[in-house]
Write a protein that binds this DNA or RNA. Sequence first.
DNA 1: TGTTGCTTGTGAAGCCTTTCACAAGCCTAC
DNA 2: GTAGGCTTGTGAAAGGCTTCACAAGCAACA
Lengths: 214, 214
Amino acid sequence: MTQRKISESTVRRLSLYLRLLREARPSGKRVLSSRELAERTGTTSAQVRKDLSFFGSFGKRGRGYDVDELERTLARILGLQRRWPVALIGVGKIGSALLGYGDLERRGFDIVAAFDIDEAKVGRHASGVTVWPLDELENVVRSQDVTIGIIATPPEAAEKTARRLADTGVSAILNFAPVKLSTPDTVTVRTMDVALELEGLSFALTSERGNGVS
Amino acid sequence: MTQRKISESTVRRLSLYLRLLREARPSGKRVLSSRELAERTGTTSAQVRKDLSFFGSFGKRGRGYDVDELERTLARILGLQRRWPVALIGVGKIGSALLGYGDLERRGFDIVAAFDIDEAKVGRHASGVTVWPLDELENVVRSQDVTIGIIATPPEAAEKTARRLADTGVSAILNFAPVKLSTPDTVTVRTMDVALELEGLSFALTSERGNGVS
DNA sequence: TGTTGCTTGTGAAGCCTTTCACAAGCCTAC
DNA sequence: GTAGGCTTGTGAAAGGCTTCACAAGCAACA
């Protein structure tokens, strides 16, 4: 789609800009400068302009960026002009929280199916999503055209689950299990590990220094 | 404690090394080389050695790193030779999931108090932690010597909650609300945003390219 | 139309992180 | 005890990301 090698940090910031633009819209602001975007996302104006410049020129000199237009542009760049069907594997504590977490739907991601190995959890979940037995993973994922999977299983099961997802054609995985997944490199994996983040905070507190990082 | 300017990515990797060492112990391995550490955490052996070299020399040439010793060393570097009392603000979906999530306790973080503005949630939580009314935040945090707070409130309440925590002497915040927190720079903030991570995956899928990132 | 003020887009510089490559050093086995 | 094989620790090189700094351009207004 676009040129290669956009860094992960750039993509992260693009998401932040998009989030900000969506929040800004109701306020009636029609235009935002790179400086304003920067201040409200915790970066610098040069960084904002550089990030956007990888994809084109979207601003007007002397004015800034049109809020609506930049919102559409960023959504397109990030692949969010569409909705993504997502499969959730593991309906324990974290899985259940995700099922009920409206922010995902609001931002374009629909959990269309959930899976659990525990028969007791199979059926209709409180949040309205159907929980399938794990055996059905391949069938349901294929029939629903799922390309993004969320792993919220116990750590022991994560690796195997990842392999099954990969084999079924899923090419992006958000992993909540505190393990490194070994997947073919046709699959993009992001791991979220709460304890790991807390450990980062522990380090910051221990090495005693108040440099706030967002 | 140690020399300055350790990058966030280094700290992240140190956590991964530590996690791996703890997993490796039961297997009976007494020694691990930087190559083995690297392979199992998704980096390179040179990176492992460089990361460790910021803090000292812990290996034995020709052999590798003693598992027990390096585990202790990393725990000390990360400030994990102690336990951290943590306060949780917001006992909704995410907050409840965290309360029941044993991995935190296992890795040295004790949620010693939870808070919610909703009277109905106040009392003893299923997971055994006391849920306090929000008004009690300052009292309880101070009396329990909490220095790490987890914000799991709705986004609108996050900023104010962060300020209250900061004013009460909390100097590290793990933020689950999808907003940028503005805190004095005596406070270190890390934000975890599920939708943001999914957007990163969306970008990867959209810009069509299979470069697996862990 | 000309002037003033402001903001973008971008090469270049600066800084930081990762990778390279190799001397130094440990261990085993003969 | 010494030869061979392996691994660490680390300067130096390479690579990547961020910041700088400024020409180009838009808008408002006289």
